[in-house]
Write a protein that binds this DNA or RNA. Structure first.
Lengths: 246, 246
DNA sequence: AAGGGTCTGTTCGCTAACGTACACATAGCG
DNA sequence: CGCTATGTGTACGTTAGCGAACAGACCCTT
């Protein structure tokens, strides 16, 4: 893989002004994020923060009886470890890699120092916190009102927006645990979408064929989250982003 | 009502060190918050921030078809207007008074200045942001897995924790719109709780009789949220809280 | 080539919650 | 006092999704 590419594949890093970016870059360490790796257990402190590049990391909450739901998708538009900055050090949810790939990590303390300077890093992370809150809210709404099929669409779209390709390596089983529904429910919903020509899948591998169609099949939740991320993160005017090109 | 009492009834204000508190206090304006008042429409900017004291304010999201769900309860452990500080200025959800009472408001700009100084106000609001995120996450979980009755218990407990008494003026209809379920479902669940001797209600008025019992009937979600609020807000060691007594 | 593990397809009865409809009770008002 | 608003009780059939069980398909290893 092309590393210089992946360096800016995390859009949070890409959104930083040159000065901040250059202070942080030397401390970023490229690492592999294998499927299933737990970056933080619920309630535990983490010493590193992670910037996924080609991997997808999720926050999800595990109930006492073992069932689970996804609280937020963190991919290349995000950071794992916001809680170090908000002051609580940790949070009850678990952070897990659910699509293998690469990412960056750095010592939490270093980023915390940068955060305390009160510049662009602070601004960016606060905006990110808001985007995350919107995502979680919308998942709450979606859990209440929408069908498994609609939720699957929303989930696929949010996930793919955080990946370089339209192609995702994941099983129905794993999707089910993210949505908090039965595996059979996912199989059925995915079957419908495939018959409608929107996606195509086989054994742990989903590809989107008709993205506009998929967006139409999704509930309003996807668009709400997408546009808030765009407004808050992607389009931010934090400073000179020339390092992205250099 | 005793105003000097209500001044510190907002626990966010109460948690501030004396210095910060005294800078802010002159700008706090006691106001009435009547049932149903909309403090912010979804997507609109607000010029004031609000600190509920004896009132309960909720964030809730309204879908295209008019149905709604609560995203978070903001009462006397909270502030309405966090989005001014996080950088997005606004957020898609609506802020509504759903239990009448009193509260404080101040110009958003003033608090924003204080926030930018980077002291205790910044710290506190960040911790609050995290608490809010936990609450919203847990509502997402609860929406997915728990019965109407369990959710009603969770909702009652979270609400009452933010009120001075064990007594709440609200109709089944309104609760239903908060939980995002049918009114009949709330009536049935409330009936069960009443028969079990946990609560007692009549025409827009609910009283908790057996709080420990209610906690037992609730799902784990309540306790997760409660303890995170305690850890993050109530127990914070931000500085000298002597003004609370003086 | 065979075998075992993983992933997907499909079935069946079950239940919580839904939508709808309407009866009744209470509070407030003229 | 009676009228009307609003709030609550209850009863129906309908349905999405659940839990459990099992068959078939695909892949990798031996």
């Amino acid at each position: 893989m092309d590393l210089s590419q992946s360096l800016v594949q995390n859009r949070l890093l890409a959104a930083l002004p040159a000065a901040e970016y250059e202070r942080l870059a030397p401390h970023l360490e490229l690492i592999e994020l294998p499927l299933g790796e737990v970056l933080r257990e619920g309630g535990a402190t983490q010493h590193y923060v992670y910037f996924p590049a080609t991997a997808i990391v999720s926050l999800f909450y595990v109930l006492e009886d073992g069932s689970s739901t996804e609280i937020a998708v963190i991919g290349n538009i995000g950071i794992v470890g916001l809680w170090l900055f908000l002051g609580g050090e940790t949070t009850p949810s678990r952070a897990v890699v659910r699509a293998a790939g690469y990412g960056y990590r750095m010592k939490g303390e270093l980023l915390k120092n940068e955060f305390s300077r009160g510049g662009a890093v602070l601004q960016l992370l606060l905006r990110y916190a808001q985007a995350l809150l919107t995502q979680t809210s919308q998942i709450a709404v979606c859990n209440r009102y929408h069908s498994v099929e609609q939720q699957l669409c929303r989930w696929l779209l949010l996930t793919l927006d955080r990946l370089p390709s339209d192609d995702l390596a994941i099983t129905h089983e794993l999707i089910a645990s993210m949505l908090g529904v039965r595996r059979e429910g996912v199989t059925e919903a995915a079957g419908n979408l495939q018959r409608a020509g929107l996606i195509s899948y086989s054994r742990g591998h989903i590809e989107v064929l008709d993205r506009p169609g998929l967006e139409k099949a999704a509930c309003e939740c996807y668009e709400v989250v997408r546009s808030e991320y765009e407004r808050l993160i992607t389009d931010i005017p934090l400073g000179d982003p020339s390092h992205v090109l250099g």
